[in-house]
Design a protein around this nucleic acid. Structure first.
Lengths: 349, 349
DNA sequence: CTGAAAGCGCTAACAA
DNA sequence: TTGTTAGCGCTTTCAG
């Protein structure tokens, strides 16, 4: 056992060393230690003193108390990432990217589920209570009370919107969902498909809308019909229902693009329900890639998006905002690709 | 610079009201307001004063600064839930249960991914830095550095282990995985199966072991062979490989029990690989239920576990620990059930 | 019934 | 090159 804290406390546990403990033991004052540890550049100090302080800090296993520091500088060095649905695996990648980057910037990333129904529970607990310096909002609910609050309260809390366009917020960070969706169309077109339909998300959600725009845009450029699409919730059930609706209305379709992985799973069920087969009767591509894709029947061809990069970019934007640098929307360019598996084939005859 | 705040700052934003602001406006002192707001029972105060204070607090939208409070009482009123893999949807339910209960107890729940490879990043950031009062450890890694740290550092940070047995920790909170696994066996047995195999997780992980124990125990009670099991990682790939291994060695098996939802998806692929069908050739049940189960082919029969209850129970245990009440391991009893879909049939002939 | 004051652990002017 | 001191916003004895 090392440190053993300090003097002979009766039967106290080896309490955590404080700044003052380090200072005393090193024969200097708190402020010196503080400045050394935070490597204050304006500090002129004798190298030996610095060494001594550093040594003592290490010996005592000193770790600053973030609470005290936060109170002092009114900065918590924590961000919160609000995600709408924890059970959606896709957010895991975003989270990891964001977490690492935050760490590099010296921030912790707290994850919170911003579930509908909980109202602004997460917001209230974290933000209003002053636990974080900034917010990464990945929620896609359109009339989210939080959004209005954030927008109204300019100059208030730093924040960015992730993967969605909040009009006039000037704080959106996104990926090129449109370009990626166009790539899906190209992929299908290259393999001979001329009747392509899309299962979208609820069209009042910006991300759903963007994917559709990219899809339709390329279709038009290609001189193809762009009217075959049907909305469903972002879930297996939503995908299933939408696929049925779409296929009922447009039996000529030979390929489908699902806006979401779970929706794609629902689509697969829908085509089975109709006694069809993927890809013999309809080809299918899903937005977002997950390990599970490989194990579906057939293995699902997907569009892998640069999720971790998105998370990291969002953190960068937030840090820029906090440190008073430029604030503005940004996009992570490229980084997406089709991962071919077996759900796409040439169109049936 | 003094406190000042309230006074005529040049172009200051409507800064957040502090305790002292409320106090001044109500014509009392900080301490009174503090005691009223925290409803200190030892406080004897004139009802009208109390009303006035409450009114002013509401009017000013006063929200205590948690940082300051934390520094003062050395309690953050936050817990961290460490989960091993954010992309595993199963944790979402645990998280929700824990979050709500924590809220009821007046705590926020911070979620962190305790990924292998990040080493103890999450631990260091949250715990060592003193951001939380307690830890809910759902990680299942066996030789986790964190576990040893927690165990060694008794009297240190409050913590519970969720859904796993850490020997001698006396801080485990779990579900009846054994009873649930026995129920799976019964379900299969009732439908005529006599040759039942199990795809387990890595057997050095306690949760994997418990499920196997329950499975084997009931098999033995039923006078059946209990030796058909094969381990794989907790993933689609692991399930697939294990199923192949198991079926190669034991072709007589007519039913399989997968320890995990992703594994079950892998198992389904394995049986397809072999040109077999679920459930005609082999029946299949998965531990854990997810919405997706309904949409697989065939819809997967699952064992739904009381995940939210587990999360809540873990929080209760943690709170008990912190408030100096009994500490001890506990189990949430029952709460599990088979949700029948279409992956179980009578044994092939 | 209410106020004064000390202090939680740290940072940051300002002195020396 | 280092020390002093005044807070950050809140809780909590202890007085009055």
């Amino acid at each position: 056992m090392t440190s053993e804290a300090g003097a002979g406390q009766a039967k106290a546990l080896p309490a955590r060393a404080r700044l003052v403990d380090v200072a005393k033991r090193a024969g200097v004052t708190k402020s010196v230690v503080s400045r050394i540890l935070n490597d204050d550049t304006t500090l002129r100090i004798r190298p030996e003193t610095r060494e001594r302080v550093l040594a003592v800090a290490a010996e005592l296993g000193y770790r600053p108390n973030v609470t005290a520091r936060a109170l002092s500088v009114s900065r918590t060095r924590a961000f919160a990432l609000l995600i709408p649905d924890l059970s959606n695996s896709v957010y895991a990648a975003v989270t990891r990217g964001a977490f690492r980057r935050a760490r590099d910037h010296g921030y912790v990333l707290l994850i919170a589920e911003d579930a509908a129904g909980d109202d602004d529970a997460a917001y209230a607990e974290l933000v209003t209570a002053g636990r974080v310096d900034g917010l990464l909002v990945a929620s896609s609910r359109p009339e989210h009370p939080l959004v209005e609050r954030l927008l109204a309260d300019r100059g208030g809390l730093a924040h960015v919107f992730l993967n969605r366009e909040v009009q006039g917020s000037n704080r959106n960070v996104g990926m090129d969902m449109q370009g990626a969706s166009a790539l899906v169309v190209d992929h299908l077109h290259d393999r001979g498909h001329r009747h392509i339909g899309m299962v979208t998300g609820p069209l009042d959600l910006a991300p759903a809308r963007s994917r559709l725009d990219g899809f339709q845009g390329r279709l038009r450029e290609l001189g193809l019909d762009d009217t075959a699409h049907f909305a469903g919730t972002f879930s297996e059930a939503g995908g299933c229902a939408a696929a049925h609706g779409l296929l009922d209305a447009r039996p000529e379709l030979t390929a489908l693009y699902a806006s979401t992985f779970p929706q794609a799973v629902g689509v697969m069920k829908a085509v089975r329900d109709r006694g069809w087969k993927v890809p013999a009767d309809v080809s299918l591509i899903a937005y977002d890639d997950l390990p599970m894709a490989e194990f579906l029947d057939p293995p699902l061809t997907t569009l892998a998006m640069p999720l971790a990069t998105l998370g990291a970019a969002a953190v960068d934007a937030l840090v820029d905002q906090i440190e008073g640098r430029v604030i503005g929307s940004r996009q992570v360019l490229g980084g997406y690709e089709i991962v071919e598996r077996a759900s796409v084939a040439v169109p049936r005859v």
